[in-house]
């Protein structure tokens, strides 16, 4: 058993590219669900919007990556409007069902044979995505890190990704401590009360949906650029629920909740996976095969979400005082 290797692989994943994708979605969801109380179960659609914007603009239309970034933000805004206009007046549970339905609807559309020419059908779009970004990589060609096992290309993605994530965290921090933040928190607590005080609740909810969706779209853009591939079936509803798990783990409605949640979530998940694989491969566990590790990881994720919601809905660092008041 090589514990150093297990640890290094774990750390690499806990703050790596995949973790970053979830982090962006979680920062966005924190604006929507954490602060505004919108039960958006279709967050994966915004990530998909960002990823497909890059895929379609770069591969289908053969245009530049920077244009794709702009298109990604525009498309996610349009998606927020499309999703929000019919649903934001609905009850919380209806909103949840409609947003998850809309995200599935979009996935089925992009993977369909009918639009294969544009979206690439079930295989999605694979190829040289984001060359412009990788060309900017300032790291020396033979760069390697101690302990961490990122390639030069991944490290560049991670550096830019974390910088962006911190920038978005700062943005959220600025927003939620302003009077704007006060209104959205009021909406989370009781929408009707805020209406009775003369605020146009619909507009604020829409703004929260757009901002949160836009941040999540950057997760999708990062995905396409880092993995050079956009596949429809990676945008399943479960993605959204893992983002919820992350957010609840770190604590909803806390500025650093998404960051803490992402690191802890991926550290535990990756660490457990690596450890279990290693135990199986070294013959310590005989009743499981290496292919079982994936399912067991997912089982633990589901179990984790349940237990978190039951025992610590305020997250690991949450405030007990707030919990006592939480009627939901």
């Amino acid at each position: 058993m090589d514990f150093v290797q297990i640890f290094s692989l774990t750390i690499t994943q806990a703050v790596g590219v995949t973790a970053l994708i979830y982090l962006f979605a979680a920062i966005g969801l924190n604006v929507q669900f954490g602060y505004t109380g919108l039960l958006n179960f279709g967050q994966v659609a915004f990530v998909a919007a960002g990823a497909y914007a890059v895929g379609v603009i770069v591969l289908t239309f053969d245009l530049g990556l920077w244009l794709a970034v702009v298109v990604g933000v525009v498309v996610s805004t349009l998606l927020a409007l499309l999703l929000g206009i019919p649903t934001l007046r609905l009850r919380a549970d209806y909103l949840a069902i409609v947003t998850i339905a809309a995200s599935e609807l979009l996935r089925l559309l992009v993977r369909s044979i009918a639009f294969k020419d544009v979206f690439g059908g079930a295989q999605g779009l694979n190829g040289k995505l984001g060359q412009e970004f990788h060309d900017l990589n300032p790291l020396p060609a033979d760069f390697t890190l101690p302990v961490l096992t990122w390639s030069r290309q991944d490290l560049w993605v991670v550096i830019v990704g974390w910088s962006l994530a911190l920038l978005f965290t700062l943005l959220v921090w600025g927003l939620v401590r302003s009077p704007w933040g006060r209104v959205v928190k009021g909406i989370r607590e009781d929408e009707d009360a805020v209406v009775s005080l003369g605020k146009n609740v619909f507009v604020y909810k829409m703004q929260a949906l757009i901002i949160g969706g836009g941040i999540a779209a950057f997760g999708g853009i990062l995905w396409a650029v880092a993995k050079q591939s956009v596949q429809p079936d990676t945008f399943q509803p479960d993605f959204t629920f893992f983002v919820y798990t992350i957010l609840l783990l770190g604590g909803a409605a806390r500025v650093f909740g998404p960051i803490a949640g992402t690191i802890i979530f991926w550290f535990l998940l990756a660490g457990f996976g690596e450890l279990l694989s290693s135990l199986i491969n070294n013959g310590y566990i005989e009743f499981l095969t290496p292919t079982d590790v994936g399912s067991i990881r997912f089982m633990l994720m589901g179990l984790g979400l349940m237990l978190l919601m039951i025992f610590r809905p305020q997250g690991i660092f949450g405030d007990r005082r707030e919990l006592a008041l939480d009627a939901r």
Partner: peptide
Amino acid sequence: KTGLIAAMIVSIGLAIFLRYTLVL
């Protein structure tokens, strides 16, 4: 006295757990 939305999220966790139990 777990709230309805919390219970709904618990049911999502349960769904994920059961699904992958079936895969296992």
